[in-house]
Write a protein that binds this DNA or RNA. Structure first.
Length: 534
RNA sequence: GCCAGAGUAGCUCAGUGGUAGAGCAGGGGACUCAUAAGCCCUUGGUCGGGGGUUCAAAUCCCUCCUCUGGCACCA
C-alpha cells in the first residue's frame, strides 16, 4: 500500500494531506450522518495514501458541555464516565466501518486541554479576550439563557421554560467583530484565486451573507457554577471555556507539531497545515465559516493558512429528516451488521453527490449493491477466473496485441476520470468511472465469446488476449475501488493470486506478467436476495 | 421574513442557447463463461406554472408555486 511514492497528479504540488472531520458530540448514539461524514473523509484519506501522499486523518469526539453534564446527572454518573460510554459506541462503529484515522481528537484528552489553556492565556495576554457583564432572561429549569428566538408568537417565554428571570452574568468575550472586513475580503480573495474557502462554491454566498450580518463579539465562557464540565480558564478558575475554544481547537491541538506559544517553531506543523475540514452543512455557519477563521487569524495564521471547508449534505429518510418522533432513525451499526460494512460504505459513497442532500433507502442500498457490485464487478471476476481456469488452467498468456491495446486505452481513460473525480472530492463519480471499466469488460466478454474461441485452435491467441485483458482490468479495478472497498480490493487481489503492495501509479497497464497463475473463483459479492431484507 | 439550493422519464440524477439524455426499474430478444449474473433492443418526459427576450430556451430575464437548508450550539 505504501510502497510507491510517485504521484500521478502533477496539479497537486503538496505531498502531504491533512484531513479532519467534525468531532461528534457525545450526547447520543451515532447515526447515518455521522457515518457518512467519516466514510467520506476516510475514502479521501485512503485515496491520498494510494497516491503516495503523506496523510494525517484526524477525527474524534466533542465531550464537554451542558448537555453532557445534564445527561450524566440524569443517569447519576460522573460526566467522564458518561462520555466514555458514548465515545465507545463511536469508536466501535468506526472500527466496524474500517475508518482508518491517524489521530483521535477526544476533547477531554490532557493534550487538548493544555493546548486550549495556552491559547486562552496567550489571546488574553494579547488583548483578544476581555471580560464583560451582560444581562438576559434566564430559565432556572433549563439552566440556560433565553434569546428572542425562544419567545412564542405572543412575545413571551412559554411554560416549557418554567420560571424565567432577568439575570446579569460576567463572562469572557473574544474580539470577533473587528475581523469582519478581513474575513469578507478573505472570502472574496480566495474565491477569485480559485482556492475557495468553502466547497461547493454555492455555499460561499451563504457564508458571505452571514459574515455581512456579523455584529458583536463572541461569548466564550460559562461560570463554573452553571457549567462545571469543561476546560477551566487558565487565568480565572471561576470559568470554563464554552464550546468554540474547546471543540474547534481540536483541529490544531491534535495536529502534528502544533505549539500555541507565540513565536514557537512550527516547521513540522506547517508541512501539514492547512487541513481540509470535512463538515456538515449545519455547522458551516457560524462555527466553521466565521468563528474558526477569525480564531486562527487571532492566533497569527496567515491568510493562505486558513483551511478550506468541504461541506457535505444530509441523508434524508423518504424525503423527511431523521427524527426520533418519526421513528426513522437509521442506525449505521445495524446496517453494517445486516449487509456488511463495505456494502454500507459503497452505498454512502455512490448514491450522493458531495455537497448535496440525498434520500436514504434501504431498498436502494440493496439494489446498488446487487447491480454494481454483485452483477457487474463481482460476476466479472467470477466469470473471468472461471473461463481462465476452464480454458487455460488459470495461466495467463499475453496473446495478440490489439485486444490488449484496447483494454489499455479503456482503462487509462477510466483511471483519468477516476482521479479527476476524487481530486474534486466526488467519490460517486469516481465509482462510476470504475463501474464503466467493469461494464466495458463485460461487453468484451460478450463480443469475443471466449467459449466459442476455446473451441477453435486458430483463435488461441485471441482467447489469451481476452483473458489477459480481463484479468489485468480486474487488477486495476481492485486498486480503484480500494479507497472505498479496501476488503473487496483485497479479495480481488487474493483471487487473482496477486498479493503485492500497490499504489495509484500501479493502475498503469501491464502489471500482470505472462505465465501468471490466477487463483480460484469464489463469489466476492454474493447477491442480496429480496427476502433477506425484512 | 431574508439568503441559498433544488424542482427534467416510475426512481436517482446529468445536461446552462441549437432536433430532450444516462443509470436503475419495466418490456422484448439472442446467448451460456458466470453470482438466473452479463449483452443487445425497447416502453417511458407538454424539462414545476405563467409571461418575456431570441431565428432558436430545460438552458437567459421577470413572476408565481412547491420542497430543502442556513440565518437560531444537532453529520
Amino acid at each position: 500500500m505504501d510502497s510507491a511514492t510517485e504521484s500521478t497528479s502533477p496539479s497537486r504540488p503538496l505531498s502531504s494531506f491533512f484531513i479532519t472531520t467534525a468531532i461528534d458530540y457525545t450526547n447520543g448514539s451515532p447515526h447515518l450522518g455521522h457515518a457518512y461524514e467519516k466514510v467520506l473523509a476516510d475514502v479521501l484519506a485512503r485515496y491520498h495514501r494510494l497516491k503516495g501522499d503523506k496523510v494525517f486523518f484526524l477525527t474524534g469526539v466533542d465531550q464537554h458541555g451542558q448537555k453532557v453534564q445534564q445527561s450524566a446527572e440524569k443517569q447519576g454518573v460522573p460526566p467522564k464516565q458518561f462520555v466514555d460510554g458514548v465515545t465507545a459506541r463511536f469508536t466501535a462503529l468506526w472500527e466496524k466501518l474500517d475508518i482508518r484515522f491517524d489521530g483521535w481528537a477526544a476533547t477531554t484528552d490532557e493534550r487538548h486541554k493544555e493546548c486550549v489553556r495556552r491559547i486562552l492565556f496567550r489571546l488574553n495576554a494579547e488583548g483578544q479576550i476581555y471580560k464583560d457583564r451582560r444581562g438576559g432572561y434566564y430559565s432556572v429549569r433549563q439552566e440556560q439563557f433565553l434569546t428572542d428566538k425562544e419567545r412564542n408568537e405572543n412575545g413571551e417565554f412559554g411554560p416549557e421554560w418554567g420560571e424565567v428571570e432577568f439575570r446579569e452574568e460576567e463572562n469572557y468575550y473574544f474580539r470577533l467583530a473587528e475581523h469582519k472586513q478581513w474575513l469578507l475580503d478573505l472570502i472574496d480573495r480566495r474565491s477569485a484565486a480559485g482556492t475557495p474557502l468553502v466547497i461547493p462554491d454555492f455555499r460561499v454566498a451563504e457564508l458571505r451573507n452571514a459574515v455581512e450580518k456579523l455584529e458583536g463579539d463572541l461569548c466564550i465562557s460559562r461560570p463554573k457554577a452553571r457549567l462545571a464540565w469543561g476546560i477551566e480558564f487558565p487565568f480565572d478558575p471561576n470559568f470554563v471555556t464554552y464550546v468554540w475554544f474547546d471543540a474547534l481547537v481540536n483541529y490544531i491541538s491534535f495536529a502534528p507539531g502544533y505549539d500555541p506559544a507565540a513565536g514557537a517553531d512550527l516547521t513540522e506543523f506547517k508541512t501539514w497545515w492547512p487541513a481540509l475540514h470535512v463538515i456538515g452543512k449545519d455547522i458551516l455557519i457560524p462555527a466553521h465559516g466565521v468563528y474558526w477563521p477569525i480564531m486562527l487569524k487571532a492566533l497569527g495564521f496567515a491568510d493562505d493558512e486558513i483551511p478550506p471547508l468541504l461541506v457535505h449534505g444530509w441523508w434524508n429518510i423518504s424525503g423527511a429528516k431523521m427524527s426520533k418522533s418519526l421513528g426513522n432513525i437509521v442506525d449505521p451499526a445495524v446496517l453494517a451488521e445486516k449487509y456488511g460494512p463495505e456494502t454500507l460504505r459503497y452505498y454512502l459513497m455512490s448514491d450522493i453527490a458531495t455537497g448535496r442532500d440525498a434520500d436514504f433507502s434501504e431498498e436502494r442500498l440493496v439494489q446498488r449493491y446487487n447491480t454494481d457490485l454483485a452483477n457487474s464487478l463481482g460476476n466479472l471476476l467470477n466469470r473471468t477466473l472461471s473461463m481462465a481456469a476452464k480454458y487455460r488452467g488459470g495461466v495467463l498468456a499475453f496473446g495478440e496485441a490489439e485486444t490488449r491495446a484496447r483494454g489499455e486505452a479503456e482503462s487509462a481513460n477510466r483511471v483519468a476520470a477516476y482521479t479527476a473525480a476524487l481530486d474534486r472530492f466526488a467519490p460517486d463519480a469516481a465509482l462510476e468511472a470504475a463501474g464503466a471499466l467493469a461494464s466495458w469488460c463485460n461487453g468484451l466478454v460478450e463480443e469475443s465469446a471466449p467459449w466459442k474461441l476455446a473451441k477453435d485452435p486458430a483463435q488461441a491467441d485471441r482467447l489469451d488476449a481476452v483473458l489477459y485483458t480481463l484479468a489485468e482490468s480486474l487488477r486495476i479495478l481492485a486498486i480503484l475501488i480500494s479507497p472505498v472497498l479496501p476488503r473487496a480490493a483485497a479479495g480481488i487481489f487474493s483471487q487473482l493470486n496477486w498479493n503485492k503492495a500497490f499504489s495509484l501509479a500501479d493502475t498503469r497497464w501491464g502489471g500482470l506478467p505472462g505465465g501468471h497463475q490466477l487463483g480460484k473463483a469464489s463469489p466476492l459479492f454474493p447477491r442480496i436476495e429480496a427476502n433477506a431484507e425484512a
